[in-house]
Computed example of a mutant assay.
Amino acid sequence: MLVAGIKSRPVYSGLAIKPYARRHLFALEGEGAKALLEQRSTLDETALSRSEILYVARGSQGAGHDEALRKLGADMFYVAPTISTLLFRLKGSLSSARMGTRLYISGTEGFIGQVMMVALEYGMDHASVITEHRGSLARRVQCVHCKGITDDVTHSPFTCSHCGLPLLVRDHYSRRLGAFQGVNIDAEEPGSAPDPEELFL
């Protein structure tokens, strides 16, 4: 039910530490911690002394990522209770960031999209932000009809949590909203929506 070749779909290149950055800022969610932990060999004492790690354990499979991240010995380490709290903390970090700061994001697509929105708000170019998808493929979807956003969507079609319309989840992605687009699948023949299919595990 998805359309192939949608150009707006994000591409995540994977975490790669930029050794000459003046400051490294990591925003990590759940399994996204592993993306940084796997880079241990490239994180020397100098890089870690210029690093800030913001982590939220949401959706994490298995415990202990926060402790493993803490043991890296970054200059600053913060465990957020929610994504909203992490984003608030990130805004504070970006408001005082200087030229040469690199932002690294790893987690689910919904998380990456929300962090990217904050980065764009603070003048960062999306092409300079380093991203890696880890964890669930569940999507953050905006209903194009009522403009409501639903997180953790795994099926298509699904019922909009705001207006109740059955929505087809498209691969069309809005960087401004950090969400995929959902359109009414039975607009011309109400009640004809096919059964939901689990597509984004």
Rank of each mutant, 00 (worst) to 15 (best):
A4M: 14
G5H: 05
I6F: 08
K18Y: 08
H24S: 01
E29M: 01
E31I: 06
K34V: 08
Q39S: 14
R40N: 03
A47T: 03
L48T: 04
Y55T: 11
A57G: 07
S60V: 10
Q61K: 14
G62R: 05
A63N: 02
G64P: 12
G64C: 07
G64I: 07
H65E: 02
E67I: 04
L69G: 11
R70F: 15
K71R: 06
G73P: 01
G73K: 10
A74H: 06
M76L: 11
V79F: 02
T82F: 06
I83H: 04
I83D: 11
T85N: 14
G92P: 03
S93R: 12
S96L: 06
T101F: 01
R102W: 00
I105Q: 03
S106Y: 05
G107W: 10
T108Q: 09
F111R: 05
I112K: 02
I112V: 10
Q114N: 10
M116W: 01
M117Y: 02
V118Q: 06
H126L: 09
V129D: 05
T131W: 05
H133L: 15
G135Q: 12
A138V: 07
R139T: 04
R140A: 07
C143E: 01
H145C: 04
G148R: 12
I149V: 15
I149T: 09
I149Q: 08
D152T: 00
S156C: 09
S156I: 03
P157E: 00
C160K: 01
C160N: 00
H162F: 04
L168F: 13
R175V: 15
R176V: 05
L177M: 10
G178M: 06
G182A: 01
I185V: 15
A187S: 15
G191C: 08
G191Q: 08
A193I: 09
D195L: 15
D195C: 12
D195Q: 14
L201N: 15
